[in-house]
Every structure is written in structure tokens, then in C-alpha cells.
Simulated scan of single mutants.
Amino acid sequence: MLTALYRTRVTHMRRAPVRHYFEQRGYSWYVDLDDLPTLPRWLQPFARFEAIDHLSPTGTDDDSLRARVDHYLAGHGIALPGGTVTALLQARVLGYVFNPLTVFWCHDAQGVLRHVIAEVHNTYGGRHAYLLPPTGGRPAAVKKALYVSPFNDVDGYYLVRVPKPGVALDMTISLHRENKPAFVATMQGVRRKPSTLNILRLQLSSPLAPLSGAMWIRIQGITLWARRVPVVPRTPSVERERVDQL
């Protein structure tokens, strides 16, 4: 079983139109979608992995998370029969989940990394998946396509650097306009074994991590509003792809 926990430190740096910085501690799971971890019954409420939290439904009887990845790739003319798909994501904790960023690393049958999917979620229940090449430690550029923040329009492009996690986790996403970074987010972490003890430690150090993460982002939004940062209205035409949470 390929499963690991990462104790994470997430930072957000807004550079325009005002400078604003915050950071938060949490944790993420790194899993094999064909071999998701099975926890003791009493721990399961603190770590559940649900297909409905990611990507689009397959429209078939098999609507597992792995099937949704294959369905997404097929929509882009890609097939990876027999290949492993690993993911960095947050699990549901007591029924609640918030994944600002989920990353899927898609390999062929020989174990070679062929494609990366970076799925961005906003606090309104919308999400959009970006298909990226396997650039390793170098960033890949992709046009922004989802309304994420009420203080950022759906324009510009992202530079996404999401190398596969190892002993350490180190990812960066920056939003650029006019070839200048307007916003930079990082996620760094240290790998831990998914032992019962480590899971309990993370629950104590970051209780209800998905809920606290979503709340913290909203608090930062209130702070920006108080600083009179212009608000960009959210309209159906702004969110080019939306999948309602079920």
C-alpha cells in the first residue's frame, strides 16, 4: 500500500492590489487510488475518501475516484491502462471536506509519470481540473479558468509546480497577470507514516482541519474586504466549470 501523511504548512501571499500574507498548518494524505487506506472503524470518521469530492461523475455504474480520473483523461483523448494514479488530497473529517488543491499523478503501466491533474476547489462548491505535463520541479503554465476568490477575476495564468512528494513535499502555484505574480501559494510538508498514532497526533494538532481551513480563508477574505480591496462579482459566466457538492 502506498500511503503517507504530510504535516503541511500552507502560505498565501497576495502582491496586488495590496500586499497580504497568511499561513496555516494542516495535513494531507498521499494515496494510491487503486489501494485507498482502510482505517480501523473507530478512526474512519476522521478520514474518509469519497469520489463525489473530486472531478466529474462518470455516468456509469463504476463511479469510483479512480474511475473519475480515467473518465477525465478519456475526455482529453488519454488512456493509461494498468497505470498507477497517486493523489495528494484532504480526506473528509466528520463528514466535512475542503480541498483547495488536489493533485493526481498519472503513470503508465511501466510506472512512468505521463500526466498531472491539478484540481482547484473554491469555497462556493465549484471546482476545475487542469491537465498538466509532468514537468518535475519546473512550473507548467495554464490559463486560469475558475473563479476562486472574490478579489481576483478569472483572468491571467497560473504557474504550477507540483513535483511528486517524497520525503518532503514542496509545491507552488502562482497567479500571473501581465507577466507579474499577483498571488503566490505554497505547500510544504514532511512525510509521516500513516500510523494510528500519527493520525491521532494530527487530529489533536489540527482538529477539523478541512473546516478550519475553509473558515480561515473566509476570515482572510473579510480582512481584504475591510482593507477596501475591490470585489469581483461572481456570475455563472465566470465559473466556466462548476460541479455541485453532493
Rank of each mutant, 00 (worst) to 15 (best):
L131D: 02
L131H: 06
L131S: 04
P133V: 14
P133A: 09
P134V: 11
P134I: 08
P134L: 14
T135M: 04
G136E: 01
G136N: 08
G136Y: 03
G137W: 04
G137C: 06
G137P: 04
G137V: 03
G137F: 06
G137A: 11
G137D: 10
R138S: 06
R138D: 02
R138F: 00
R138C: 00
P139M: 04
A140H: 04
A140D: 00
A140M: 00
A140K: 00
A140F: 00
A141D: 11
A141M: 08
A141S: 14
A141I: 08
V142W: 01
K143H: 07
K143D: 09
K143W: 07
K143L: 09
K144V: 07
A145N: 12
A145I: 13
A145R: 12
A145G: 09
L146A: 07
L146Q: 06
L146I: 15
L146S: 11
L146N: 06
Y147L: 12
V148F: 11
V148K: 10
S149T: 07
P150W: 08
P150N: 10
P150G: 05
F151V: 10
F151R: 02
F151H: 10
F151E: 11
N152S: 12
N152K: 14
D153T: 15
D153C: 10
D153S: 15
D153Q: 14
D153W: 13
D153G: 12
V154H: 05
V154F: 14
V154W: 13
V154N: 05
V154S: 14
D155S: 14
D155W: 12
D155Q: 15
G156E: 08
G156Q: 09
Y157C: 09
Y157G: 03
Y157R: 03
Y158V: 01
Y158D: 04
Y158W: 15
L159N: 04
L159E: 11
L159R: 15
L159G: 00
V160R: 00
V160A: 01
R161H: 05
V162Q: 02
V162R: 03
V162E: 12
P163G: 15
P163M: 01
P163C: 13
